[in-house]
Design a protein around this nucleic acid. Structure first.
Lengths: 351, 351
DNA sequence: GTGAAAGCGCTAACAG
DNA sequence: CTGTTAGCGCTTTCAC
């Protein structure tokens, strides 16, 4: 009977799970008595459709409970309103703050976040970037300036806005918002030296992986060298940043180098842990041992003595990165594509 | 020359941005001298293809730098290896922990997280669910058991695994992992009563929005009622949970109800803030005022006195939720679809 | 302002 | 084990 359809069952009736009675543009178009194109346009740019039709279409959409299929839309247009956000960790309190900043502006512009956690591994990062790009994202936000060569190539080839965040520096792939961690480390070093400390130790978490912590140490050493000082030992813990880790570090340091008079911790949580450990041991802070941290987390200002630290504008980093992305997506020029948000030394009582 | 293509320009040359020279299955197939289907299969289930062809295909993939387009794949199969994770906030330290737990198992199974932040608004939650479902996700992980009617309907209709997390209770949409916040509140209440406290105040953050904090209060009240006690005032702050908020709450409480002898904070960060405020004011803890928290965040065990609190297994909640999802996706039956992970009262020095 | 036709790149469902 | 065919649901062209 039928010609080219032959006797075959008419297309996939039960092709897969919930495919059965999905509402499509076609359904909406029929109900509104218009073409599918008009529906599509009415939904994306309502002004390009006459008021009458727009109204009819909106009613049909509501009646049918139509929700556009983003996969189909993305496939056809290669725009998905999606932004991968690639960070090294969530347990480091720094990153949830940044992601909140990003999220606050992206959600307002109807852009979805795809979250990727690299666990401080550049290989994992590369794999994530590859996967994410296969989603035709509208842009990418990625932590740091150090990536594998392939990661950089893929990102550059994607031809979409890319913002590298947290670290500020030379030759970003595209745009960059952050601060110089070397400068921050140097600033703290100079401050401690100025306060008269002479044997300054450093404690960082997994510094082979956490490049930025390593840069803060480099900054400290630069300050030490400039002052013609030797400093104290640098400890790289083999576990992530945490309060407990800071306490343990103090114990270890006191065993190995009892003559130190100050400790610069790469993160506030460790620093607070160190501070509390000193209190437990009855070591006077800063009298016997000064303690300094990094990041300016909220509770660093609530302990006693309050922690001397460097405040980093985390929410701002996220917000500005997202704003740059959105501006570029809107086709507008981004005034500054490399922004140094800086940092603030909080001189408090612990050092 | 050409037949049915007529004189038309050969398809969209410059159809959009980076569409130009995208490598597709077709290219890989040609280079390997096989059909596109074989390429598709070789990539998804290598065992279903002969070793010889598989090798040729893998070489072609590498040579060409082929990355499959997930949108096309998802559209065709309605499986996208994507899981929306919907949480109320990232600034509450509880949620990054949970997301890390989820992420640790999902990444291992090549499932991507779509992160959604509701800001404790059920209306925002509904909007997020609607958007996310338009991505044909493989499953959904969502916080809490309270949703709008439409959210529940959409989720149920999607016909994919759904795990509601954090709260444990009756009649989940599908699967559920969490704990009873009423029971946790009651447990803390009974403990405090048992310790001899008589005027127990409660402090929670934005309790009109944070349903689970409200449940902990309900639990406390139940314990108070059972013991025939009246308790103290309950304070609902108008800002999110934070250390500083806890300190301020103590100040306010001491003004309004100086006769209280214990404060149960809905979160550890506030509780620690309260504790530190007492120290600043020279109020003996627990002598004059006992302080209790909730969650068992790491630093609650580092302050002095250590904070009495309730430990919630956050990482476990995330991990198990993701495992249940993965099991279901593998077509295997999930042994327990409603799991109560419980909680642990940490009796320490502050109360 | 509106519509018709032609894919986006992939995979399900066959047949071989 | 492999290939052919026909879409997935939308948007891009291009004509009206």
């Amino acid at each position: 009977m039928t010609t080219d359809n032959g006797g075959r069952p008419r297309a996939g009736r039960n092709r897969s799970r919930n495919r059965k009675n999905r509402v499509t543009v076609k359904d909406v178009a029929e109900r509104a008595g218009v073409g599918t194109m008009t529906v599509s346009r009415a939904l994306r740019s309502p002004d390009s459709v006459s008021a009458k039709l727009r109204e009819r279409i909106e009613m049909a959409v509501a009646d049918l409970g139509y929700v556009p299929n983003r996969l189909a839309g993305g496939l056809a247009s290669s725009r998905t309103r999606t932004v991968p956000v690639i960070i090294p960790s969530l347990s480091n309190a720094v990153f949830p703050d940044i992601v909140e900043g990003i999220s606050s502006v992206l959600q307002r512009h109807d852009l979805q976040i795809l979250l990727g956690n690299t666990q401080y591994s550049l290989a994992d990062e590369e794999a994530l970037v590859s996967t994410f790009l296969s989603w035709s994202p509208d842009g990418v936000i990625i932590t740091g300036l150090e990536h594998t060569e392939r990661t950089r190539r893929m990102l550059a080839a994607a031809d979409i806005p890319v913002v590298e965040i947290v670290e500020w520096g030379e030759a970003p792939i595209d745009m960059n918002v952050g601060l110089s961690h070397v400068a921050a480390g140097r600033t703290m070093g100079e401050y401690l030296i100025g306060q008269g400390y002479r044997r300054i130790a450093f404690v960082g978490p997994q510094m082979d992986r956490d490049v930025r912590a390593a840069k803060r140490l480099a900054g400290l050493r630069a300050a030490l060298a400039a002052a013609g000082q030797e400093g104290g030992p640098a400890l790289s813990l083999d576990r992530p940043s945490a309060v407990r880790a800071g306490g343990d570090a103090i114990s270890q340091l006191l065993g190995e180098a009892p003559d130190i008079d100050a400790v610069f911790f790469a993160n506030d949580d460790m620093a607070v842990g160190g501070l509390l450990e000193c209190q437990r041991r009855g070591i006077a802070v800063p009298g016997t041992l000064a303690i300094a941290g990094f990041n300016g987390l909220e509770f660093s200002g609530e302990v006693m003595p309050r922690l001397t630290t460097i405040l980093t504008p985390r929410h701002e980093i996220g917000r500005r990165a997202a704003e740059m992305l959105v501006t570029r997506l809107a086709g507008q020029p981004v005034a500054a594509t490399r922004v140094d948000v800086g940092f603030t030394l909080l001189r408090r009582e612990s050092a």
